[in-house]
């Protein structure tokens, strides 16, 4: 049972980090299917906790070839752009979203779509909580669609990426989700 977001936000960063539910490789390998019928509105998805350091930011910049100095040059970031520190990349945050949805829908669901905004500046030293809460569900075309709100909050409860998503889960007695995924027609 995942710790409710509301409870996590009452904790100190060290305690929050202890509630990290990012799956290991073995957990992802052996993931059992969550079916449409298993999900109720209000369900909170497992929380992914991150504590990014300057080295994590540098690794991300290098991986995607993003050379913007605000992410790795502290002097430039603080003195030129007047930022509080080097900044966590919006591109990293938005790349966590499909992963978060994939992991929850594995092994045969589909992380269909997500929308979000980038707000707030995140810096090394922040403790970040990737969260999602189910807001709706419906069946269509023999598939189960789950709607949710999601975001990435700081330890202080500041929402840095308010958004929403729709994912697809198989019905317990249904057929496989088609792959490649074809959204049902309206």
């Amino acid at each position: 049972m995942t710790a409710p977001l509301e409870e996590l936000l009452k904790m100190e960063p060290k305690e929050i980090q202890a509630h990290n539910e990012r799956p290991t490789a073995d957990q992802l390998r052996n993931k059992t299917q969550t079916y449409y019928e298993d999900v109720e509105v209000g369900l909170e998805l497992p929380k992914y906790i991150y504590s990014p350091t300057p080295t994590h930011l540098f690794r991300w910049s290098a991986a995607i070839e993003n050379f913007h100095r605000i992410h790795y040059d502290l002097d430039f970031g603080m003195n030129h752009d007047k930022n509080p520190s080097i900044l966590v990349h919006g591109s990293w945050k938005q790349s966590v979203v499909p992963q978060f949805l994939k992991d929850w829908t594995l092994p045969k669901g589909w992380p269909w779509k997500a929308a979000f905004e980038h707000r707030a500046m995140l810096v090394p030293g922040d403790t970040l909580i990737m969260w999602g809460t189910v807001t709706g569900k419906y069946e269509k075309g023999g598939m189960g669609f789950i709607e949710m709100d999601l975001g990435m909050k700081t330890q202080d409860g500041v929402e840095s990426m308010p958004g929403s998503a729709t994912v697809v889960l198989p019905l317990r007695d249904g057929t496989d989700i088609p792959y490649p995924f074809v959204p049902p027609k309206d």
Partner: peptide, 12 residues
């Protein structure tokens, strides 16, 4: 490099 940087260890 990408999956390590986004911290996703999925064996897939």
């Amino acid at each position: 490099r990408f999956t390590q940087a986004v911290m996703d260890p999925d064996p897939r």
